[in-house]
Every structure is written in C-alpha cells, then in structure tokens.
Design a protein around this nucleic acid. Sequence first.
DNA 1: ATAACAGTGCACAATAGGTGCATGATCGAT
DNA 2: ATCGATCATGCACCTATTGTGCACTGTTAT
Lengths: 319, 319
Amino acid sequence: MHNRCMIDPRLITLRVFARCGTVGATAELTGFSPSAVSAQLRELQRVLGMQLLTKDGRGVRLTATGRFLVAGSDALIAQWESLRAAALEAGDQVQSNFGLGGFSTAAAQLLAPLAATLRSTRPLLKVQVLEAEPARCFDLLVAERIDLAVVVAMQSDVHSDAHVEDDPRFEQTVLLDDPLDVIIPSDHPLASRETVTLDELASEPWITEAAGSTYHSLFTAAFTAVGATPRIAHEAVEWETLIAFVGAGLGVGLLPRLAPLHGAENVVRMRITGRGKPSRRIVAAVRRGSIASPLIQESLGILQVRADRILTARPDDDR
Amino acid sequence: MHNRCMIDPRLITLRVFARCGTVGATAELTGFSPSAVSAQLRELQRVLGMQLLTKDGRGVRLTATGRFLVAGSDALIAQWESLRAAALEAGDQVQSNFGLGGFSTAAAQLLAPLAATLRSTRPLLKVQVLEAEPARCFDLLVAERIDLAVVVAMQSDVHSDAHVEDDPRFEQTVLLDDPLDVIIPSDHPLASRETVTLDELASEPWITEAAGSTYHSLFTAAFTAVGATPRIAHEAVEWETLIAFVGAGLGVGLLPRLAPLHGAENVVRMRITGRGKPSRRIVAAVRRGSIASPLIQESLGILQVRADRILTARPDDDR
DNA sequence: ATAACAGTGCACAATAGGTGCATGATCGAT
DNA sequence: ATCGATCATGCACCTATTGTGCACTGTTAT
C-alpha cells in the first residue's frame, strides 16, 4: 500500500490533514507519529516555498494556499491513478500490493471472499484487508492505505454536509442493496408470519444503534417514509448485542440481510414488505482514476458476483 | 532544485532514461551514479508492479508499458507544475530554489544579469546557474535540475527529427532574435564599409563551427537562402578561437550580436543587410505548466527587458 | 487554578538510498 | 577469435533522511 504512489507522500499527508484537521488525527490515520506528521508538513512548506499552515488556537489550520493546493491535488492524484491504471492495462500487468477496507459485515461477507479469491488467482499479489467504518474507509483511501473500500452509501441525508457521491476524489459503484430484515422474539405474535410491513411494527419497542450512527439515520428514514414514529427502547452497538436484546424479549430490531444470525436463540428473522422497505446501499469506492485498473476491475467483478449470489441465495427475496 | 517536485524522483529518472536511452547517460544527467539509477529503476518497477525495462544487448530498453508510462507522465508533470504555479500565485508566495540553464553567451549576457537581479530583489531565493548546451538544457529541464533554460530555438531543420517547438513537456517564449554579424580582418577591403550583404561575402574563406553543430546549420541555412555555397576554410569551437582565426587573416566568420568582441585585435564587426540576413532565435524554455509561476513570469520579464536593452543598445540595428 | 489536549523541538535510532568498485555480459574492432 | 570498450548490475559500505519517544510550551475547558 505504502509508497506505490508517485505523488510525494508528504502531499498525501497534507491531504489527510486537510480532511481531518488535526495533526494527531492525521498521524493516527497515516500510521505515522504526530512528530513525523509535523515534520513532514514543515518540510513540505520549506520545499515548496509556500506557507500552508497557520497556528489556530492550540491547533493548526490550512492557509488559503494550503486549501488551494489540496483542492488542486485531487485532479493530480486522479490523473496519476488514471495513468497507472492505463499503463497496467496496456501492459497487461498487475500491481503487486492491494489494500482493501470495509466495515464489519462487508469485510466478513464480501472482502474476505474477495481476498481469498485474489490470493488463489494471483499468488504473488499481496492483499491486505482492513476493517474500518465507512467514514474511516474514505480517509484510508485518501491516505493511500487502501485501494478499494466497501462502504454503505451515505444517503446524502441531513447529516452529511458534503455529497460523498460526487466527491472528486472517489469513484463509486453500487454493489448491492442490502435489505434490512426485522428481528423479533420467537414468542412474539408476529413470529409465525412470513413477512411483515413496517406499519405493523410501528408500535413495537425498537432496539437501534446509537443516535447519529449510519444505521440510526437509516432507521428513522425508513419510518418517516411511512409516517410513523417508532419508540426507541434500547440501543446497541454490535449486531450481536442487538440480537441478544431481541432474544431477551426487550423489543425488535432491524438487521441487514448480510449480517448473519448464526444460530441465535429465541429470535426469528423476517422479511419486510410494503412501503418504506428499508435497505442500505452498499457500494465499492476507489480513488478516482484507479477504476480503470485491471485489478480493480477484476475485484469489482468478483464483488458483484458475490453480492448477487448473496441476494439470490434467498430465492424469495422480493427486493 | 532537487526534490521540490511532488512527483516521485524515480519517475523523473525514468523520464530522463526515456530521453537518453542508457543508464550511464541518465546517471550523468541526473547527477546520480549509474548504480543508483539502476537501483531506482528496479525499485520503480517493483513498486508499480510493472515491467518497464528489458535487456537489449548490453543495454536496457523501455518496454511498451514503460513508453506508455513515460508518455502519460508528461501530462502529470505538467499538471503538477501548473498546480504549483497557481498555488504560488494564489498565495502570493515565492519558491525558494530556482535553477537556470543556458548556453555560453546566453549564460553570460542574459542569465548572469537575471541571477543578479533575482538575488537582490529576492534575497532568500537560492539561484543556481548552469551553463549547458541547448540540447542538454532540455534534458536538464526534464531531469528537474533546472527550471528555466535560455536556448537557441531549433529551426526545426533537417536534423531535428522531432519538433521541439510543440513538445508537450515544454513551453517556450521568444526572447529575441540575435542577429549574426560578420567578423572580418581589419585589413580586409570590406573592412571600411558600414554594412555588407551575404552575397558580397559568398566568395570569402569562412570559419565556422564543426559540422553538425547548431551554428553550422544556421550558417548553411543563411547561405542557401541567398543561393550561395560558401567555402569553409577552418573550423572553430569557441568564439574566442574564431575571432583569433579571423584576426590572423585566415578568413571571415559569423558572430552573434550577443557574443562580445571584447577588445579583439585586427578584426572588425560588421552588420549584415539584405536578403538572407542570418540570425538565431533565442527563446526561454520552461517545463509545461510552470509558466504561470510568478517567479517564472518575473524572470521572463527581466530577461525580456534585458534582451530588448541589448538590441536597442545598438541604435542602428536594422533587424 | 488545574487538568487535558494540541503541536513541536530534540536526542536517538532505524532505514532508505547513495557511492565506488568489482563482475558479467555484449558488441565492435583488430 | 581475441581483446578492449561499453553497459548494466550486484554488493559492501556509508550517510543522511526520516521516523520514534519524550519532554515542553501554549491553549482551551472545567
């Protein structure tokens, strides 16, 4: 992953800094120490003869020049990625390092099989998989730590101030729409049903993720679509916890189709039909320009096949 | 000069190699040792996962992929230069290192004053001047050893297979047309004249530079324009030598207006009028994209002023 | 006031990257 | 064929860039 980029790593660091705003966070994201980041940025300014940073309180801030440079660097990076992809394609050759990133379920269900496939078909390719939250995945892409990320598409909701879909730094392709199923206790009156609608569930006590998380906004969006206001009884972070809560009869919850139940007791998984059928859109994101790379193309193909298989494995899926 | 470029220096090395074809020459031009160049190129291939070179006899040759990459890198470099220039301009800041290159007379008459001016107006700017032949100047630009070169424009003659004027790697601006004067012995019948035409000189024994040199082709071009075939009696390399030859009565020669006689004995310098008036076009060349840089702009301005002053210093100039 | 936090300078350490020389391989000349 | 010249490359060694860990300063929040 590191240094296969022809762009000066210090400029990459600057870009990461532009994204997260503090030296410490930049250090964490790039894998350097804060001192190293500080030194890199100082050296960058010296070499370029530009003042890129100013002190701002106890932190530092980009100057106008710095912002300008970062903004312009998008196109530069994209052009390099494009060139590299074209050269690889033209020469029918393959890159030697490949970094993958994705959030938990994606990592397990999509990235792991992809990595396995690549490992067998391209023995000399070094694949590295990183599990990380969607937002962090984009950061890791910018930081050149990974080359491809599987994330849930931001619904360009109230929260996301910037539209990630047309970010000039990334290109995204839809892999699948992962429907959200409902998990209810086995002894619940609705447990024997084949499918259920959101309206029927509106009055149930709900278990969700903490407010502000990606899934929480998905959750509220689904219910506002049908005009209901569900009662949130409990909050969980891990799927495991949510399933356990439901199993204990504390309420019902939404679980992505991709997330496995693996033998959880006292709960049933049920399809949701009708209006406001919730789903999360899972997309693959790469740095702009790199999408033409043969390895990226092959990976996207493998992911697509895998995604389709996951969906068609449940023949009664009504998405 | 070194490493103010955000593009990986190994890619720069590859570009230089693409230009000169051998590791040794690349080493000489970049200032590295041959081992270093070899190691750099090997590392580049490893990092990119591309085979860029193949053995070819006792040397190495670019593969198709390598040529592709080099060709595409032109645009990448240009974009970086452009971005840097724009950022410098936007932030009203100046770069800290500046490399100048030019051939002998240009270096003395144009670059030296420019360097002096910059040194006084920008005390903290490190200026480095390299004297080098025009062809080498372009190489040095590619190698990022210099940022601005003053060269005689290739007349896109028979010799130059590739048109340098529209090379995607460079941008050129005309500084001045340096007329060629004739140097004749003081005791020559024509020595008392104010001006002379090429026709009148056609039958003289001529002293030129070695065949194949830039000036030699200029020389022949001038005479073919008037339909004459001058007799070449002697060849010199340095202007000093040519002047000495003429002073010794061995023949007559052409000397650029820019080249000073400084007190040479037994010779007179004389304007040439009429058809086929020979001159060499002197241009400033920079890497494409960098022309918008404020420092480049200022330098071009200074050079232009200096060039105009040189021409107008001889008020009877009839160019 | 005090604690927590952000960034930076410094001594030290690791390591990337350079040089110089020796080696192997190829071509052109005798 | 043989020899020398030319090129590239591998290796041992070295240097100097670059990263780490820690201490220190300045700033904000409690």
